[in-house]
């Protein structure tokens, strides 16, 4: 019966899950060329966001958004303000983390956000109704809606697809393909994690003692969102790169928030009852 219905409605069986794939972004290799940003925009045909000099080092695109799915951060760092001691220029190509427990996916009421057979989190543009619940849910501020008056898929939510279309054809995502230094590596997530551990040990042995991995299954940031299918090797604390120390899953605090709302609501009700009681009395 269900099979007949599926055939009649032309509903395909979902593709069989494969070994999860993802990105390992090694910031120690990033040279800030932004080839990933351009390759991403070209493959996905995303429009430019405007031509304004930000004054913030060499970063003129600012942040991830509906039409910027890879974004290279530039951090000009020194041990103290107005000093050149320990000066360095950190670069990091940021992207959707494709979390194991994705907050955007949990918040989506329409089922537009799905987990693909490659383990990535994907927005189905024909189902998204632009409610925007996913936007504040994301602890990294990745997913965003395209402006309603814009000419790109107006109003709907957008983010990195981990090049779902390219993966379907057995190709690596455009950013990883374009990266000239292999700072962005694409592959089987478990293999990448093993590779990252080796790279970290190697860097530490060479004296990069503040190097760390971000988004591994065992690390603190995995407490709520789980491991990240796009994880990073950082040369400093996550805050330096605009990443939360512990990304939070809104679901975890939902009961508490409902309770607070209920208490506040009751308090207002009591207050107005007192006020009305006085006036009418």
């Amino acid at each position: 019966m269900i099979d007949a219905y599926r055939r009649f409605m032309n509903i395909e069986a979902p593709p069989a899950p494969q070994r999860p794939k993802g990105f390992f972004t090694d910031t120690s290799l990033c040279i800030g060329c932004k080839a990933c940003e351009v390759a991403c925009k070209q493959w996905n045909q995303l429009p430019a966001d405007g031509n304004e000099l930000s004054g913030n080092s060499y970063d003129n695109t600012g942040a991830l958004g509906a039409t910027t799915w890879r974004h290279v951060q530039f951090v000009e760092q020194a041990k103290a303000n107005n000093s050149r001691v320990g000066q360095r220029w950190l670069m990091m190509s940021d992207v959707c983390k494709h979390c194991a427990n994705a907050a955007c996916l949990e918040a989506c009421p329409t089922g537009a956000l799905v987990r693909t057979e490659f383990g990535s989190v994907y927005v189905q543009q024909d189902i998204c109704n632009g409610c925007g619940y996913c936007v504040p849910a994301c602890p990294f501020g990745v997913i965003d809606r395209a402006p309603k008056d814009g000419h790109f898929e107006a109003g709907r939510a957008h983010k990195c697809t981990l090049c779902y279309d390219r993966q379907k054809d057995g190709l690596e995502p455009a950013c990883a393909k374009a990266c000239p230094t292999d700072s962005i590596q694409f592959g089987d997530i478990e293999e990448l994690q093993a590779k990252a551990r080796r790279r970290l040990a190697d860097l530490r042995a060479r004296g990069e003692t503040s190097a760390r991995l971000y988004g591994m299954p065992e690390s603190t940031e995995a407490a709520e969102v789980g491991h990240l299918n796009a994880f990073f090797l950082l040369l400093d604390r996550p805050e330096v790169y605009n990443l939360p120390e512990v990304p939070r899953l809104p679901r975890k605090t939902m009961a508490q928030r409902y309770a607070i709302s209920a208490v506040v609501g009751l308090a207002f009700a009591a207050l107005s009852a007192v006020a009305f009681g006085r006036r009418s009395g």
Binding site: K34, V38, P47, A48, G50, N51, L53, Y58, N60, T61
Partner: peptide
């Protein structure tokens, strides 16, 4: 190219 221009606009 708009994609290059937005990266270094001025």
């Amino acid at each position: 190219s708009s994609w290059l221009s937005e990266l270094m606009p001025e």
